[in-house]
Design a binder for these strands. Structure first.
Lengths: 193, 193
DNA sequence: AATAAAACTTGTCCTATGGCAAGAAATGCT
DNA sequence: AGCATTTCTTGCCATAGGACAAGTTTTATT
């Protein structure tokens, strides 16, 4: 019996007919990235929509002072994309880099558009993914104002323990909006409790 | 000669046929809000998509300690909405309140859906609006990490001078992630330069 | 105009977090 | 295994911004 396709966990039979599933999945292409490879580099226009099957990736921007700020982490099942560059078709300010070897499935923009405009379920799905990303960004954004660094770290530990395990302290720190030094102290504090 | 409809500045003839424009505009309903009226209250599920023709509004959340944190400001031409509550159909954590008397045009969710799934240009337009909001949120979010409070204020002054003119200091301060006291000092510093 | 309520400013002191630098520990490379 | 590099920890001091409280100014209400 053939193993079900990874993407059948993404385009669930509850939301798509078998025919739709097959159509959609047939347009994806499996790709591999080695550790440190870039999914996307600053200045490029995002042309792919990736679902990650294995491995870890990180997106980051480099600010005017040259500081590297992590904007997100990606692991199994996540969508690796810069939404705004993909949909607005303009050059990105972000970099997305593999933190380990990765396997992913990709769809290019034109194919995405064809599916988006021809399949109602596909566009509902795409819109939900985008809105979910918006929601997470907003939560993080509010936490930056309302919560202390320690609480943001505890929340990340709870919500994405795989990130804590697999990502270096300095990348986590910049995501939380603090320095690696401060995060190290926060970790110590937590371990002493 | 009849004055062109406000919404023809939103659904531009460059993107829509005259017929599409008429169809879309005919579904909107003009509504008025008095100062301090709520477009949306915490706990409700957002069911409207508003384009604001005149007046000012503010969205905010109340955090666990009871602090009021402004998340956005809206003025002429802006879309007043909680995207995630509207599309995910779940209760919002946000409040959106008129800061002055407002006139707006609204579309309810079901009508939005009908237009979204039947008019390709309408869904491109809707998606672009959503992605643009995402982009702005991300920029603000990065600025919270990379820039000092004073720089965030200067950026807001440049990008939304109407907000500086029309919104109280404490609301601007919470949007910038600082206290009203600090913003008052920042203003003084700027005026002394 | 008189009063009350908000909005804003300013002073004093405090705290979370940053900057820098030195070590220690872990990881990668030959 | 041995060396280099990166990652992480820790100490010391600095600073942006917060907490609180007292004024002052502006705005709204009668």
């Amino acid at each position: 019996m053939p193993e079900p396709h990874f993407l059948s966990n993404v385009f669930l039979s509850k939301n798509f007919s078998t025919e739709e599933q097959n159509t959609i999945i047939s347009h994806f292409k499996k790709v591999s990235f080695d550790k440190n490879d870039f999914f996307l580099k600053e200045g490029q226009t995002e042309n792919q929509y990736w679902f990650i099957e294995s491995g870890f990736a990180r997106s980051y921007v480099v600010d005017t002072e040259g500081n590297d700020i992590s904007t997100n982490f990606y692991s199994k099942g996540d969508i690796v994309i810069d939404w705004t560059s993909f949909f607005l078709r303009n050059p990105t300010r972000e970099n997305i880099q593999a933190l380990s070897d990765c396997v992913a499935y990709q769809l290019d923009f034109d194919t995405f558009q064809t599916l988006f405009h021809s399949l109602e379920n596909f566009r509902e799905h795409g819109r939900t993914n985008l809105v979910s990303s918006y929601f997470k960004l907003k939560q993080q954004s509010i936490a930056m104002i309302a919560d202390q660094a320690k609480d943001r770290y505890l929340r990340l530990m709870k919500e994405k323990p795989q990130v804590i395990q697999n990502v270096s302290l300095k990348h986590i720190a910049s995501f939380l909006g603090i320095t690696d030094t401060s995060l190290s102290r926060i970790r110590k504090e937590i371990s002493e409790e």
